[in-house]
Simulated scan of single mutants.
Amino acid sequence: MRALVAARTHLTAGDITEVRWSSDFRPRAALADRFRDGRVYLAGDAAHVHSPAGGQGLNTSVQDAYNLGWKLGQVLRHGAPVSLLDSYEQERRPVAAYMLGLPTRIHRGEQERGAAAQQLGLGYHEGPLSVGRAGALHSGDRAPDGPTTGGRRLFDVFRGPHFTLLAVGTDTGLPAFDGDGGQVLVHRTGACEAYGKGLFLVRPDGYIGWAGEDASELARHVPRFGLAPVTPC
């Protein structure tokens, strides 16, 4: 302890004369068997706990809350099918299970912090809401940032509780959403390497819910999100 304090602070080793209080730290890892039981939902530390060594607790909890929050909003306010709420556990529990092991390995010194700890590469490819692919991306990917034709950033376009229908590098016709009450922002932009070419329906939590080369299949999939049917291009 003297060597550590001397190396990290203005104090010298001789300034440390005694330890007046100490305690043992024992990491605990736990994962709830399910994140939903009827009308009861678990999120954050109520659903999963792990060693703080990786620093993912807050990020994972906030992602839980946003994932569940927009789905509750669509069901309660916009008539989405109740089955949309089932996707909360189906999407988030595998992520929590993966993150449970990472901090444990970091705590034990078996793995160093790296890109995995940033959680920017997490996705829902195997989730029930992921349909289609276009360009460089699959449905279920986290929608990347990038410049837009109008000089804004894509993250600025996505920011908010709305869905975004994003057309990248294509002049294909874009549908109108009937009576959606502003739930869907339609945005067209030029080529973007991170996306390639295609149409991407970006969910409120920033993940791609549908992707395709044109809008012909879009009308079949939007009702599960509580979005109004689309008017053909």
Rank of each mutant, 00 (worst) to 15 (best):
P147K: 07
R93A: 07
D64N: 13
F35C: 08
I208S: 01
A115Q: 13
G79F: 06
A167I: 04
G196E: 05
R108C: 13
P52R: 05
R159A: 15
L154Q: 06
R153G: 02
A117W: 02
G101E: 15
G114R: 08
L72G: 01
F158L: 00
R39T: 14
Y88T: 07
G206H: 06
L68F: 01
D24I: 10
T9W: 00
G123W: 05
R133F: 07
S83C: 05
D24G: 12
T17K: 12
L4C: 09
G151W: 03
S61C: 06
P223C: 14
H221K: 06
V82H: 07
D64T: 10
W70M: 14
R152G: 05
L185Y: 04
A194H: 02
N59A: 09
D171F: 00
G79E: 12
R113A: 14
F163K: 03
G173H: 08
L84S: 10
E126R: 09
G173T: 12
R142E: 10
Y207L: 08
W210P: 01
C192Y: 00
P27C: 08
R159Q: 12
R105S: 12
G44R: 06
D141R: 07
A6G: 03
G196K: 03
G181H: 06
A13D: 11
D214A: 10
A116M: 09
G79P: 02
M99H: 03
L165R: 02
D214N: 15
S87Q: 05
T231R: 15
H107A: 15
G150H: 04
L227P: 05
R77D: 15
V40K: 04
T17R: 15
K71C: 01
I106K: 02
V19I: 15
H187P: 00
G146E: 10
P128D: 08
L201P: 02
R113N: 04
A6Q: 08
A97W: 00
Q63G: 10
V95F: 04
S83I: 07
T164P: 02
G44I: 06
T9K: 03
R105G: 03
R105W: 08
L218G: 01
V157Q: 03
V75W: 04
D86A: 13
V49T: 11
P204V: 11
L174S: 07
P128I: 07
R113M: 12
E112Y: 11
A3L: 09
